[in-house]
Amino acid sequence: MTDHAPAPGADDPLDLHGVVPPTVTAFHDDETVDVERTAEHARFVVDRGVDGVFPLGTNGEFPLLTGGERQRVVEAVVDEVGGEVPVIAGVGAPSTRQTVAHAEHAESAGVDGVVVVTPYYYPLDAAAAVEHYERVAAAVDLPVYVYHIPSKTGNELSLSTLEDLAAIDNLAGLKDSSKDVPWLGQAIDDHPEWTFLAGSDSLLVPGLDLGCTGMVSAVANAFPDLVVDLYEAYDDGDVGHARDLQSTVYDVRTALKQGPYMSGVKTALELRGFDAGPLRSPLREMDAEQRADLEAALDDLGLLDTIDLHQTE
Rank of each mutant, 00 (worst) to 15 (best):
H310E: 15
V20D: 02
T32V: 13
H132F: 04
D79M: 05
E232R: 14
D225C: 02
E84K: 14
G273M: 07
G113T: 01
E131Y: 04
V228P: 00
D34F: 02
P123W: 07
Q311F: 09
A39Q: 03
F62P: 01
V117C: 04
Y147L: 10
T2Q: 13
G52R: 07
A288V: 13
P55C: 12
D299F: 03
E31T: 06
A242I: 09
G264Q: 11
E131M: 04
V216R: 00
D30G: 10
A297L: 11
V130T: 10
V78P: 01
E107Q: 15
V73K: 07
A109D: 08
A297R: 11
E107K: 07
S202R: 13
L203K: 03
D169A: 13
L271A: 02
R253P: 01
D3L: 15
N59V: 03
E40H: 05
R37H: 08
Y120R: 10
D209C: 14
A39L: 08
V87E: 02
S95R: 12
V146M: 07
F196N: 03
R37D: 00
Y122W: 13
A89V: 01
A220R: 05
D225G: 11
L309C: 14
E61W: 05
T38P: 01
D238S: 11
G110R: 05
R48A: 08
D209E: 15
L283M: 12
V78D: 06
P143W: 02
G277R: 00
V35I: 15
L303M: 08
S177H: 01
G277P: 00
L303I: 09
A103I: 02
L269E: 00
M262S: 10
Y234V: 09
K152N: 13
T58G: 04
P86A: 13
Y147W: 10
R280L: 12
R48M: 11
D47I: 05
H191N: 15
A296Y: 03
N59S: 11
V249W: 00
G57W: 01
D3F: 11
D79K: 09
A292H: 06
M262Y: 11
P119N: 07
D189C: 12
H241N: 10
P260V: 06
E193S: 11
A233N: 07
Y122R: 14
R135E: 13
V111P: 02
Y250C: 09
F62V: 11
F44T: 10
H41V: 14
D236M: 08
A101F: 01
R284D: 10
L304P: 06
L204Y: 05
V20S: 03
F196C: 06
S160Y: 02
S217P: 06
D209H: 14
L159E: 08
H17D: 03
H132M: 09
F54M: 15
G240A: 15
